[in-house]
Amino acid sequence: MSPFSTYIIHLADNALILGHRNSEWTGHGPILEQDIALSNIALDLIGQSRNLYQLAAERLNSLSPERKSITEDDLAYLRDSTEYKNFVLLEQDNGDWAKTILREFYFSHFQLLQYHGLLNRKDPGLAAISEKSIKEIRYHVKWSSEWVCRLGDGTLESHARMLNALDALNPWIPELFIAADYEKEAAESGLALDPSALYEDWLSMVNTVLANATLPLYPPEKKDAFSLSGKNGFHSEHLGYILAEMQFLQRAYPGCSW
């Protein structure tokens, strides 16, 4: 697979896995209004993943027309954990509302910068998806930032829960800014984006909100050891369970239409 195709799948996997996680809240949110809000974000993300998988499938199909053509569902439902390229951050369990909010907050800021950068890369297909997605992501950024403030500066309990969420999720942040080989290659050919260039902007955006929320800034004082790399297929144990659930029907009844 070409570096750029792999890169598109990496973007798609990010959107799908976070969309999947967020959708686990549907029916279980802290209040109806917010149940609906988070379901909307899940729908946005799953919609983004579909657009990206379709783009990847189109490329893969045009490169080898002799093979049976691949669909978005083949990509989502028939790959195993080590072939998935999403960030480890996104597959973490939902935990409480604080952890879910913080994950959305960290990722949506990253995604906003990333998709902005992709607007003027060479691939018109990816630029079009980015442009459409940015409108959605802006709202995710706003919604999650407001919640970070409410929880950080809300009650003693909510503040404590945000501290726990920071502890749980901060170790998974460095991965976002370390380019994978395919990412670097695709970036050098003008198709993708080197994420290390996004760090400073991300840091200042995120820290502005964290400061308002009376929460400790990123990076945490103590650097956590970091070894996993989801974008290279090296995941936490969570992903296996997500896929087992998500892919169950496709795996149990191979070759069926649904």
């Binding site: 706003k142 919604w143 407001e146």
Partner: peptide, 8 residues
């Protein structure tokens, strides 16, 4: 939040 909830 009311405006955002109304939107959703």
């Amino acid at each position: 939040m009311a405006i955002e909830n109304a939107r959703d």
